[in-house]
Simulated assay, not measured.
Amino acid sequence: MEDKMRFALTCFVTALAGLTPALAFDKSVSDVLQRMKIGKALPIGEVATLMKESERWCYNQEGEGCAWSDIYLDVTDTGATFEIGNAWDDEVNVYFTDQGTFEDNRFICESTIDWLPTLRAARRDDGMPIGGRELWAIRSQMSGNTGPTDCFDYVLKSSDEAAETITLLQRKWTDGATDEAQDATVTIHFDPASAAALTWYF
């Protein structure tokens, strides 16, 4: 009788173990969360790990819409290459590739590369690419968007293992000063499906 009860208990525990969800984050991401504290700025090396493992960074997310988003294409010890996407207007989305350098073990700073030749555009309703004079006109309007080089650091806000997201506060620094009005909430998506479902609002 005791053996039967022990066998039944073993089966019950095994069944419960099967219902326990697996950890959603990769080990490298979980390790970052273990080392960091809510409300504290992340060293840029930890941010780089999140960049490498993520699918998309969504800024000021509302539902499945982003004000803009980043997809990190290449991350090294010294910086990152990424594609920025956002709505140009209510009919057109734009995308371009930019680079940033890691500085002071804390910041990613804008580079001085000319990203304008990488600019692409597409219709918001059907994703059809835009070229010719219409694309040239958008590039011409963007050509004057230059200013001081900005740097950004990141503060850990929260994580949601079930949704496979981490939320950071991005702070923008210009000439050594920051302004809370320029802060952005970043939702980092690690699940390919949820990242692919994101759009941009205008």
Rank of each mutant, 00 (worst) to 15 (best):
Q34A: 14
A8I: 15
I44Y: 04
K172T: 15
L119I: 07
E46H: 07
S30N: 14
S140H: 05
D3I: 12
F202A: 13
D175F: 11
E161Q: 12
F107I: 14
A197D: 10
D77V: 00
L135M: 01
T187K: 05
N93I: 00
A17N: 11
A24F: 03
Q182T: 14
I71E: 09
Q61T: 13
V75W: 02
E134P: 06
E2R: 15
A193Y: 06
D70Y: 09
V47E: 00
Y201I: 10
W173E: 09
A67P: 03
G144H: 09
F190C: 05
W68F: 13
P148T: 07
T97H: 09
L9A: 15
E134N: 11
A15N: 03
G127D: 13
G45N: 11
Y154K: 10
A184G: 03
A196V: 08
T78H: 02
Q170E: 14
M36Y: 09
K52W: 02
D125T: 01
T165L: 01
E64S: 12
T167A: 06
A122M: 02
C58A: 08
E55N: 12
R139V: 00
I108P: 01
A22D: 03
A197V: 12
I166S: 06
T178F: 10
V47I: 13
Y59T: 03
A87W: 00
A24N: 11
G63P: 08
V155W: 01
G45H: 05
G79M: 10
E164N: 08
Y59N: 00
Q34I: 11
A48Q: 12
E164I: 03
M128K: 11
Y201T: 05
Q170S: 13
D31L: 13
V29A: 09
